[in-house]
């Protein structure tokens, strides 16, 4: 419908084209949680990737020895808010999966506190996902998922599991916590994949 110009939309202000449909820009950082905030000391923290062959485990100190990336990205919550240009530091999942072999195509992320969420493996690779431990130059606050959370910004933010402790490879795309309870198995904000 390219023949319709912006003047015919009736909008008084031009919409930011970085905002997916149905989203509103916010400048604070709302907190959403399905349970109490786990207190995880980095001395006790560990991150595992479990596969059909076994897996790989990192302590916090080992994790900090990996290649750390600065990430600036937009984030989109299924509850209709988006934040643009947020700044994170973390380890790319490409780095982590370089040490892992699997034939499985799907991943269940597991968090301290019991939360789970499912993501196809290929959507965690190719520079699109990180385990992030800093936000805006500061250690990630526990209420935002510290010491470390998954960061998968091209999907709705419930997929960016707070307090992440590991990834489990799966042969099928089994649903995680919110995905069992009404939310979409995939969660692409540009397709408004909010619910079943």
């Amino acid at each position: 419908m390219s023949f319709i110009t912006r003047g015919f939309t009736g909008r008084s202000r031009e919409r930011d084209d970085r905002l997916p449909p149905g989203q509103t820009l916010v400048h604070d950082f709302p907190v959403l949680s399905a349970g109490p905030t786990p207190e995880v000391d980095t001395a006790d923290w560990e991150f595992t990737i479990r596969t059909e062959h076994g897996g790989r485990r990192w302590s916090w100190d080992e994790f900090m020895q990996l290649e750390i990336e600065d990430v600036t990205t937009d984030i989109h919550c299924v509850t209709h808010w988006s934040k643009l240009g947020t700044n994170w530091r973390g380890v790319s999942l490409d780095t982590l999966f370089a040490e892992v072999e699997t034939e499985y195509d799907y991943v269940m992320a597991h968090s301290y506190g019991g939360y789970t969420t499912n993501v196809p493996l290929e959507e965690l690779l190719g520079g699109r996902a990180w385990v992030a431990f800093e936000f805006d130059g500061e250690p990630l606050d526990p209420e935002h998922g510290g010491p470390a959370r998954l960061l998968v910004p091209h999907l709705y933010f419930w997929k960016s599991a707070k307090w992440v402790r590991g990834l489990e490879l799966m042969p099928t795309d089994d649903p995680g916590f919110w995905e069992q309870n009404g939310y979409h198995l995939h969660g692409d904000p540009w397709k408004e994949e909010r619910y079943w």
Partner: peptide, 10 residues
Amino acid sequence: YRSGAGSVAR
């Protein structure tokens, strides 16, 4: 635990 995403009773 209630948020915009939903309510979870524990």
